[in-house]
Each structure stands twice: as structure tokens, then as C-alpha cells.
């Protein structure tokens, strides 16, 4: 057992890999930008509220992108808004993650052909980690997306770029 076969005078010591500790603390306190776009934002707010309680996963909305780790693109991304989203994303400190919520921000949704004003997928301006399908997705779906993101962060490495 290596180091564990020695006895410690005090019992409250946990031994783990530094990488695992970093990943665990990152995925357990994903602070999101307080930011919503359209009807998906209503579902996102419902997820934050007491019934679904985003806070039990450590997700709390922050009023500033400088204090945030996560941005949930919740709704239709218009061309005018896309420039602002890009700026918000660039203002966030690393490590930062993006959840694309709903059909509109995944691929343009119902505006895919005649929406002269809609960006056909937010991944054209910022890199997206998790896509949540739905129009709009139910809070359970958003929670599932968050769990997927946590899974992704759990497998990250400090020395090696993990892409998945």
C-alpha cells in the first residue's frame, strides 16, 4: 500500500493525486456567467431555482465573467449577440467551459434556413464542450449536460491536453 502502511498520528489526512484534487475542485464549483438569451434561459433559471437546485452541483450564477468558469449559451444566438458572446467568453479566465443549450445555439434550430439574423450554431464563434439538445431542454436535460461536463473535467490532465 506504499505510504498507507505507515501510521499517522492524526487521522484526518486524505491522500490523492494532485491532478485528481484539482479536477475535483474544478468540477465541484463551476460558477456560471449570469447570462441568458431566450426561452432556454427560462429553463436555465428553473434549473437554478429550488426545485432542481443547480447549487447542489456547485453551480451558482456570477455577475461578472471575470469570476466565472462556465458559460451556458441558453437560447438563440443572433449575429448581433454573437459578437458580445465572443467578448464575454474572452473575458473569462482559464480554465473555462461552454455548454450550448438548446437547438438554436447548437445549430440554429428553427431559424436554420430563413433566419437572416441568427448564427447557425454558437460553435462558430466559441468552442463548445457540451451540447444539450432540446427546444428548450428540460431542466433534467441541462443537469445531464452538466454531469457530462463534470465527467469531462474529471478526466482532464495537467500535463496532457485531453480532447473528447
Amino acid at each position: 500500500m506504499g505510504i498507507l502502511d505507515k501510521e499517522f498520528s492524526q487521522e484526518n489526512i486524505v491522500i490523492t493525486k494532485f491532478e485528481d484534487l484539482m479536477n475535483w475542485s474544478r468540477l465541484s464549483s463551476l460558477w456560471q456567467v449570469g447570462f441568458g438569451l431566450a426561452c432556454c434561459a427560462i429553463e436555465m433559471m428553473a434549473t437554478s431555482a429550488s426545485h432542481y437546485d443547480f447549487d447542489r452541483f456547485g453551480v451558482i450564477p456570477r455577475p461578472s465573467p471575470r469570476q466565472s468558469d462556465l458559460i451556458i449559451i441558453s437560447g438563440t444566438v443572433t449575429l448581433k449577440m454573437a459578437l458580445r458572446i465572443k467578448r464575454l467568453y474572452e473575458q473569462m479566465p482559464d480554465p473555462k467551459y461552454v455548454i450550448s443549450m438548446g437547438s438554436c445555439s447548437n445549430c440554429g434550430g428553427p431559424y436554420w434556413e430563413h433566419g437572416y439574423h441568427v448564427l447557425k450554431g454558437v460553435d462558430r464563434v466559441v468552442p463548445v464542450d457540451v451540447y444539450v439538445p432540446g427546444c428548450p431542454p428540460r431542466p433534467e436535460a441541462l443537469l445531464e449536460g452538466l454531469l457530462k461536463l463534470q465527467e469531462k473535467i474529471r478526466n482532464e490532465s495537467l500535463v496532457k491536453k485531453v480532447t473528447a
Partner: peptide, 30 residues
């Protein structure tokens, strides 16, 4: 009021409007 201030591709609700290929480096068509 609705479109970006620097939109120069015309007026979207005219029947013969054609969407531009790019706006500020972003691809517009699907």
C-alpha cells in the same frame, strides 16, 4: 433598431433580399 448597426447587406424583409455569405467573419448561411 434590430439588425446590427453596421449591417450593410440590405433590408431583410424585402422580398428579394439575399443573405450575405459572411458578417464580421462569421458564416451566415447554414
Amino acid at each position: 433598431i434590430l439588425m446590427p448597426y453596421d449591417w450593410d447587406a440590405g433590408y431583410p424583409l424585402r422580398k428579394d433580399y439575399k443573405n450575405p455569405e459572411f458578417y464580421q467573419g462569421m458564416k451566415v448561411p447554414y
